[in-house]
Write a protein that binds this DNA or RNA. Structure first.
Lengths: 336, 336
DNA sequence: GGTACGCTGTAAAACGTTTCACGACCCCAG
DNA sequence: CTGGGGTCGTGAAACGTTTTACAGCGTACC
């Protein structure tokens, strides 16, 4: 039972290999009759052209590479989905899950070269990732996603994370909260640092408001529960009355941990999440969260990349920034 | 700026193309000196072999195909992660998100043939998907995931969904609930039908217990909220006192919808979810849910597939079944 | 001293497809 | 009747790699 190739189709349809190829790829090049004969032969034999051979000959793969930090996070899932939209028909997106791991990221970049992706959307992890991306950009077009290139050479599409952090903190301050805690994950991630920067800006603009920091290495709701419990344990005069987190998973856990310990949300402690995932709305207390239209961003990045590939645009450090929005829910303003 | 090929490496190292290939792939076949010369040449030129050409020549791709119904669902994400474990180094998993869409599924199967994946893990959608999978299996090894092959020809790894449904219903019945509602998504999905079958079995074993059905096409928490609201609107004597859902997203929404309408969970209505996702523990009311060790299952499927590929085993309709477990939480037993 | 053999390097074929260049055929105008 | 131009089909080259088969050379053994 051998693979059926273009040669078999040709024989079966009684035409040459070239005609089969033409009938399939440039039907206007051959007569209608041949197109018909070839089509039926293809159906009868179940012929599927071999990608490897096409690619070798054509030199293009019809593939876009994309790395994300954690595909399980709906934010990144939406990013991918937006990129797929932009890619359109005939172009497929090869997604690599770097999983917070620099080595995995590097390995995916190598894969991208091997399979000759025509361009890459990279959401780099840490500083090293950014360097790697710059290196990759020497051989193929690259657009940074959810990250700006400091050196101004790579194009990028990202959110204004400083604005997001500021937005969250100002919301709490406007509600009269004066003792904020920033609960961050992984300081080495730029997005986290920028959000913190935004929170700092808001706090510094209000002399009577103070800011504490807490760090959690992992960003699961389970860790959140533990952090919530830890906050609840603080003596009441050291306890924050507002918490800004960098992740809804964490925030959901925090709310839960607080409630379980008898601390009321939002009366005693108001909590703001980040990402506005589907579950934010059905959490223990529906979660106020900073929303980032991830899908739109993924699409914008994809569009820009396609422009680079087609030569319609040149990489120029061009940075597109999206503004986040705040979805206000009960975890800060209560039910009203 | 042209691509650097094996020919360039050969010239640069002063040897023949064959020697370069051998030095890289079978170092024992050539002298150490040549291996060294080639290695440095490769580094200096930054040579990366072209996958398409290798694959065309070798006939193997080092790729496993996998389709899942919805990658955003953590259950499937874990499945993939388990499969990646099993694949090990040198084998990559190409994931296709069929997104509840038969056409997309078909398209991914075509892609699998085009890129010559060496085997496929398929979590088919509906009856048609199963037929497609059987067809795919004529050309490459296939293992069904989360689904058993009725015709007993394809190997499979799955959960006992009947047991899961029964487990959920019996839990409610043992708590004294007598008016159950099964809230299902998409009757055409076998897993859903099997869970319903399990619920039926439990109900029929208890003469005083009744069962109603409700259907929701989509499985988002948003839809769940609407369904919860609808349940809450029922006159009290028609309202169920126990709800079994087929999906935690839906269940979280239902709980939320009920609470918002003033119906107490679990006092008035107890709710059981399915999948035991991360958020089940931090939902409005922590959710009792049927847990399926998805990652283990993904791994088992991957292992079986690798056996089929290596010829170590023969496809024989061999079905591995995993038993689900019940994670009991407040949505059925309250806080205690 | 000749044969056989092992070791190492290489030329060339092969993988399955697309495309280029050419040729056959037909039609119409001169 | 001939020539020019258009249409449509085809053989063969090309893509970049691996692998086969063979050649050259030195060594060991009879």
């Amino acid at each position: 039972m051998k693979r059926v190739g273009i040669r078999d189709v040709a024989r079966h349809a009684g035409v040459s290999m070239s005609s089969v190829s033409n009938a399939l790829n440039k039907p206007e090049r051959v007569s209608d009759e041949i197109v018909q004969r070839v089509r039926t032969a293809v159906d009868e034999l179940g012929y599927v052209p071999l990608q490897a051979a096409q690619q070798l000959r054509i030199g293009r793969s019809g593939l876009l590479g994309m790395t994300v930090i954690n595909i399980t996070n709906p934010f990144f899932a939406d990013l991918v989905s937006g990129a797929e939209d932009a890619a359109g028909a005939g172009v497929r997106v090869l997604v690599g899950n770097s999983d917070d791991d620099e080595d995995k990221e590097r390995e995916y970049f190598r894969l991208f070269e091997r399979v000759q992706v025509e361009g890459a959307l990279v959401s780099p992890f840490g500083e090293a990732g950014e360097r790697l991306a710059r290196q990759l950009a020497r051989s193929i077009p690259v657009v940074l996603v959810d990250r700006v290139d400091d050196e101004g050479v790579l194009d990028s599409v990202s959110f204004d994370d400083v604005a997001g952090g500021r937005m969250a903190a100002e919301h709490l301050i406007s509600l009269g909260r004066t003792r904020l805690t920033f609960l961050g994950a992984r300081e080495e991630v730029r997005q986290v640092r920028e959000r913190l920067e935004g929170v700092r800006q808001a706090v510094e603009a209000h002399p009577r408001v103070s800011l504490d920091l807490m760090w959690s290495h992992r960003t699961t709701s389970e860790r959140g529960i533990a952090m919530g419990a830890r906050i609840a344990e603080l003596p009441e005069d050291e306890r924050p009355d507002g918490v800004v987190t960098t992740n809804d998973h964490l925030a959901c856990g925090v709310v839960h941990g607080l409630l379980r310990a008898g601390v009321r949300v939002p009366e005693d402690v108001a909590v703001v999440g980040y990402d506005d995932i589907e579950f934010a709305a059905v959490a223990a207390v529906p979660l106020t969260s900073v929303r980032q239209p991830a899908r739109d961003m993924g699409r914008a990045a994809g569009v820009r990349l396609m422009q680079l590939i087609s030569g319609e645009a040149q990489a120029s450090g061009h940075a597109i920034r999206f503004e986040p929005e705040l979805s206000v829910r009960a975890s800060t303003v209560g039910y009203r």
